[in-house]
Nucleic acid binder design. Structure first.
Lengths: 127, 127
DNA sequence: TCATTTTTACGAAAGTCTTCGTAGAAAGGT
DNA sequence: ACCTTTCTACGAAGACTTTCGTAAAAATGA
């Protein structure tokens, strides 16, 4: 069980880009961030340097322009954030959270089917 | 659609106690907090004063010892936190989150049944 | 009555997160 | 060669969160 350092909000935004695009430069990441909101180049740089220290990302410094890549997997980060919300807001009960999410969310028939399939699979395996 | 100010971690801990016990004094809340970890009385007091300003709680100041009560509902706060996590970590897809929660969580047969019932209900209603 | 305890109010320190300015090195263009 | 652009490094400001010390008022009780 690996212990992942939880990314902050700004860090998570950067990770999303690295997960989507693979290894990227600061410039590239910054440009994508700027599609949503204005962020200074050095702000992004600083964040990515901090993320390197936290071992959230890794970088190739062989060329002048460093290339960063995610060191943590998206699913693991999702799991960590989910666990925290479950523990702090849902009394530690994942079902509680699922019920709330299902209740609030307008799920499509297809989504519901996927969820049902997963439940069926879990039921089968636990036999 | 009411816009609820999102509670911080420490504020959420206090809300949990108010939701569980109903209107409470600072002393009482602080004692419950201290069952988990050491927290100074004035720390709790200050937090609850801040929460009053944020309209997360309300207080009855008619007696010397003020009595605080939650002004936001647990479900609404859960919804807000869930929405944030869905948007920042799950690409805006509640189903994504549900799948992750279901996959990671060792759900009991009973929990699975409750979830299936809810799905069935949603399917019925949407017809 | 007078010391002790309980309570609120307030300010500020310490920690974290986000932001950016400045400096200096490296690369590129003319 | 030299000016401009691009890049990294670093420090620090500003915002937010959590923590608590101190002061003053109110209640308690001996």
């Amino acid at each position: 069980m690996k212990k992942i350092q939880k990314p902050t909000d700004a860090e998570l935004e950067i990770l999303q880009i690295l997960w989507r695009d693979g290894p990227s430069t600061v410039r590239s990441v910054n440009e994508f961030l700027n599609e949503k909101r204005e962020v200074g180049y050095t702000t992004t740089l600083k964040l990515m340097q901090i993320m390197t220290e936290k071992s959230l990302v890794d970088r190739d410094t062989s060329a002048r322009t460093h290339v960063y890549r995610a060191l943590v997997e998206e699913g693991d980060v999702q799991k960590g954030l989910l666990k925290k919300v479950i523990n702090t807001a849902f009394h530690g009960s994942a079902s509680n959270l699922i019920m709330q999410a299902l209740g609030d969310h307008r799920a499509s028939a297809e989504e519901l089917r996927a969820i049902k399939d997963l439940i069926r699979e879990i039921e089968t395996k636990s036999k």
